[in-house]
Every structure is written in structure tokens, then in C-alpha cells.
């Protein structure tokens, strides 16, 4: 069972986001970066697939700046066997990123490609579907349960009001939603072992973007709210304000 896991290095969710002046980019000064949280579920699933099959290899791929190697090291410490760094600046358009990942993946043998459902920086939720279409393989997104028997897979996908159950053949693309599993912490042994595992770094050029980020702004500060009052006595005023001022009832 060979799996490929795509991992992105992103700003930690608790980070205060500041925008640079003049250029549509984040001010990364003092920002803590982590492995995209949804990619941890993807990685854990890949490692479990390998453990259950009793054979195979887990390859972690990350596209981004050289620092993305840190996320690959973390993946190796959790249990991935090898890392591949596609070094470039990244893009605000998911398509060139997906093309580069698909190019790298198409030269490899795999049964399953795992992604997070979404990277928490651009919040795109696109790369898994794009890669699947580019490679021409089945794709199930937002998966909370995955069952594999031989080359048959059944995935439960989280949708409004419940789960959709989808069936497909491997090789395939699956994107992980929270709930798929409980990601493990790297053990000390894992961290030691990771040092001897290979990370291949290659510089790449992305294709031209089809859309561009022309501006990035901090959201308008919402006008300070109003404390209507205290306790149940404030309820009539609240309901009146919701009705008459806000037109929300």
C-alpha cells in the first residue's frame, strides 16, 4: 500500500494576521507556522493504511518555501518514510499548485493520495479535486470515515445534514475532514528516526496563474457592539432593536 500525502505549511490558527502595506501579502514577522491541521488527519490515515496493509511506503510532499521542510520533518517523525519538497514561492491560484503536485505524483506509484480538506491560510478547498481531475483518478472530499478492502474503497463524506457514502476503486484521491482519525504525536523514537529519512528538495517553476490576488486587507473593524442591558429585563429592548434597528426578526 503506497500512499502519498500532500502537506502545506500554514500560519497557526491562533496567529494574529497583519497585512503588509503596499503588497497583497501577509506580514510573517513573528508568525508561528505549523503543518496544516487537516493534513495531520491525512497523514495519520496514510500511516494507518500502511500499518494495516503491513507493507508499503508513505511519501509526504510539500510545495512552498524552503521552510516547508520543517513540516516534512514533522511528517517523517510521525511515521512517513520519505519527504519531497517542491521549492517555490507558492501561488494565490490553486491551479498552478495542483499542476505541480500532479506532475510530481504522476511519476510515482501510489494506491492512495491523501490531502487535508482545506488549507487554513487560503481556505480554498480545491487542490485535492484539481489534482484528482488532472490525474484522472476518483476523488472523495471531506471524508470522515474511510474503509478499504483490496482495491475497493468506501468513504463517508460530511455534507449538510449528514453523510454521503461514496464508493470507488483505488488508486484515488481522498481529502480528510476532522473526525477521520486522531492524529498521533511524534514519539521520541520517531523524531530520532526522522533524521535518517530522506527529504528530496527540488526547485520548481509554477505555471502562470489564472487568477491573481490584487489586494489583501484586514476586515473592516466592526463598529463596537452595544450592551443592551442586564438580565431578562433587557430582553424587550433587545427584541425591539433586532426588529426595528436591525430588521433581523
Amino acid at each position: 500500500m503506497n500512499t502519498i500525502v500532500c502537506i502545506k505549511r500554514v500560519p497557526d490558527s491562533a496567529t494574529r494576521v497583519r497585512v503588509q502595506t503596499g503588497v497583497p501579502a501577509l506580514d510573517t514577522d513573528g508568525v508561528k507556522f505549523v503543518m496544516n491541521p487537516y493534513d495531520e488527519f491525512a497523514l495519520e490515515e496514510a500511516i494507518r493504511c500502511k500499518e494495516e496493509a503491513g507493507e508499503g511506503k508513505v511519501t509526504a510532499i510539500s510545495l512552498g518555501p524552503p521552510e516547508s521542510a520543517e513540516s516534512l520533518r514533522q511528517a517523517l517523525a510521525m511515521g512517513a518514510d520519505e519527504g519531497v519538497l517542491l521549492e517555490c514561492e507558492g501561488s494565490g491560484d490553486a491551479l498552478p499548485v495542483a499542476r505541480a503536485l500532479a506532475d510530481e505524483i504522476s511519476g510515482r506509484s501510489f494506491d492512495l493520495i491523501l490531502f487535508g480538506k482545506q488549507a487554513i491560510d487560503g481556505d480554498n478547498m480545491q487542490v485535492p479535486q484539481l489534482v484528482a481531475e488532472l490525474l484522472g483518478v476518483p476523488c472523495a472530499t471531506v471524508v470522515v470515515k474511510l474503509l478499504i478492502e483490496g482495491t475497493r474503497a468506501t468513504a463517508h463524506r460530511e455534507v449538510e445534514g449528514g453523510h454521503e457514502v461514496a464508493e470507488f476503486e483505488l488508486p484515488a484521491v481522498v481529502s480528510a475532514q476532522k473526525g477521520l482519525n486522531e492524529p498521533r504525536y511524534p514519539s521520541l523514537k520517531g523524531i530520532m528516526a526522522a533524521r535518517r529519512k530522506p527529504v528530496e528538495a527540488k526547485k520548481i517553476e509554477l505555471s502562470a496563474p489564472t487568477l491573481e490576488i490584487v489586494a489583501l486587507q484586514e476586515p473592516p473593524a466592526s463598529p463596537p457592539g452595544r450592551i443592551v442591558g442586564e438580565g431578562p429585563g433587557a430582553v424587550p429592548d433587545l427584541v425591539r432593536a433586532l426588529r426595528e434597528e436591525a430588521g433581523a426578526l
Partner: peptide, 20 residues
């Protein structure tokens, strides 16, 4: 066509231009 969308979980708003 141009569009506005939240990024970083709504902590910033991006303006995008579609090339074509």
C-alpha cells in the same frame, strides 16, 4: 471579473482578478 473573498478564516479579505 473581480471578486472579494475571506482568507485566513476571515482574518483578512482578498480581492481577486480573473485573468480571463
Amino acid at each position: 471579473i473581480a471578486a472579494r473573498r475571506p482568507v485566513y478564516a476571515g482574518k483578512a479579505i482578498a480581492t481577486l482578478r480573473f485573468r480571463e
